[in-house]
Design a binder for these strands. Structure first.
Lengths: 342, 342
DNA sequence: AGTTAGAATGACAACGCTATCAACAAGCTA
DNA sequence: TAGCTTGTTGATAGCGTTGTCATTCTAACT
């Protein structure tokens, strides 16, 4: 039942160290030896024991995923992405949800690190934006990869995967502008999240490129929540829509859904009288009626690349993964909630 | 930096085996010795190395969570519950999402088992309802705990945590009945899910206890999705509501949200003209307007108990956990989407 | 006091793998 | 041909824990 490296070695007629070399893709193994060993591995359906590898080796086969994000859809997507990559590469994933406070963070990390040495951590927003965390990890000498909202130039490419919310917001705003909308509202998410400012900047840039002046009356400060979307729409469309808004950009799908709901209650036809767009392409955007035009963020793919980036760090120079994408731009998905200005 | 069992032993002036006995709460350790060791453990902030424990011991400190559920909220809740318990008890959690097919299931499990010996698995619905899976696990001799929709008497208490959807549906239906509703529609979830039949049975039982005859025209077969809720409401309220329905029970929050949306489009006032209730108390139920009356399912608590039940199995007779709850009944949460018949 | 069961403790060998370093083979240079 | 480098392989010692079994202590008996 339990197949060990020795069984493989015996069958292949080599030493156990050679088998170890083969399964770790170390250099200096003759092609023929490699094949013999691989045949034995397959024949016995050998799976290296993770605990033993972690215990014996200098590098670990365990990575951690840390999240502090209320959005379950987001978390699951990120997790699935990292997980699928781990599975492919024989790594194990330790999940670590946590509500961020400087105080308990340190202890938690240290405990986690001590319990099982980690190859590294994948940090997701908004945790990934906290410099106190990255400082702590630097101090503890733990590898990490951050998924961040931002533009590629910002920071170092070795530790970050960027999601170009700026560009996506620029494009979605442009989409609305080219469809004749002149007065476009924007419902912002939490001020503390970097994605909020990035998306707002993209919105502003698109307006500027279309020679429209930015007017802060068109912006509502929300909270990335449904309620906040409801409030935002109410606010922007107040007093019989004196601002003559014909389109609203939601900072995320949840807020867009809220805005959509509020608009309906006000008797506004979507998309005839008002176009509404979301952000993220979460299941949310398909559970509204009409479905939301939004920016599709391939979170699972993003997190897969984050994992790959992390793996390259522990594996050292050998076995580098050259095809890692470190910058993603969400792409617009046009659905029924937006249309030309009428 | 790295503290091992030997460091603790040295500081406490005992052998490393005694330290091992203490941290594993084995019997036959003098109280005084125990305290001395624990002091040393605390002073050095010692954390047993998981890889070493898993490698050396007969019992494993790793449990697996297997899910095949499209509902991210549900999965996250279950995961968090198991995770929090694992953290408390020094276990590690390996997550295993999978789309169920008899064929690849076996291979996946075997790989997973071989890679790291598992203390056991927590199976969540709908996977937990597949007898082919439990048979496979029995065959592989792997411990497991199932979270299931059902009533306590159904099966053995050693391997199952029951969620009494029957009773919850009974209560929510009774709630509507006692508020004067006579014609209550029911939008069912997927036929294959046990929760669907359990909830339907509860609905029927409540009607029966109020001397109302069950009429299958009041039931719509849906799919646990938003769209399905929309369709369900349209269907039930068709032709100017010839059935004179004044309340609709959604099989889950998502469908209830769909039903609510559809009703609004038909110009029906909620809850004045129609009461709508959901099931699960997912964030969904708070993201509709008005908020949904629903049945609160404490998924995190449920999964915590599932984890505890699993732990007792590997730990053997010693250190039994006696306070495990194996049956949960969701409790009604009354919000604005339901009210007395008018 | 002497005996003894049983509790408390420790020495040491696993667990399955990787790292180190030594050994050997093959191909080169002088 | 000797001497060297480079490429390929293997013997052996850990990694940090638990399991086994032997040993020592304790307390309750004759």
């Amino acid at each position: 039942m339990k197949v060990t490296i020795n069984d493989v070695a015996r069958l292949a007629g080599v030493s156990m160290k050679t088998v170890s070399r083969v399964i770790n893709k170390e250099p200096s193994v003759r092609k023929k030896t490699y094949d013999t060993v691989m045949d034995a591995v397959k024949e016995l359906n050998y799976q290296p024991n993770l605990a033993a590898r972690n215990l014996a080796g200098t590098s670990s086969f365990t990575v951690g995923l840390v999240y502090d994000n209320p959005n379950a859809y987001y978390v699951i997507d990120m997790q699935n992405g990292v997980l699928s990559r781990c599975k492919d590469e024989g790594y194990e994933l330790v999940i670590h949800p946590c509500t961020y406070t400087d105080a308990n963070m340190k202890d938690e990390f240290i405990t986690m690190i001590k319990r099982s040495r980690l190859a590294g951590l994948v940090l997701t927003p908004p945790l990934s934006e906290q410099s106190s965390i990255t400082n702590l990890l630097d101090e503890l000498n733990i590898h990490y990869v951050r998924v961040l909202s931002g533009r590629p130039s910002d920071d170092d490419q070795d530790t970050c995967i960027y999601v170009n919310d700026y560009k996506a917001a620029y494009e979605i705003t442009t989409h609305l502008l080219t469809h004749g909308h002149e007065n476009i509202g924007f419902i912002c998410g939490d001020k503390e999240h970097k994605s909020t400012s990035e998306r707002l900047e993209g919105y502003k840039a698109a307006l500027a490129d279309h020679h429209k002046e930015f007017d802060k009356r068109f912006v509502y400060d929300g909270k990335y929540s449904f309620e906040s979307g409801v409030e935002g729409a109410k606010h922007l469309l107040a007093e019989n829509n004196t601002l003559a808004i014909t389109a609203i950009l939601g900072g995320n799908d949840e807020m867009a859904a809220g805005a959509l709901f509020a608009s309906r209650l006000m008797g506004i036809a979507i998309p005839e009288q008002l176009s509404i767009t979301g952000f993220e392409d979460s299941p949310f955007s398909r559970q509204t009626w009409p479905k939301l035009t939004t920016a599709h963020q391939a979170n699972d793919v993003i997190s897969q690349h984050a994992a790959r980036l992390l793996f390259t760090k522990t594996r050292g120079a050998r076995n580098q993964d050259k095809d890692i994408i470190t910058s993603f731009t969400p792409s617009i998905v046009i659905r029924e909630s937006s249309g030309p200005k009428q």
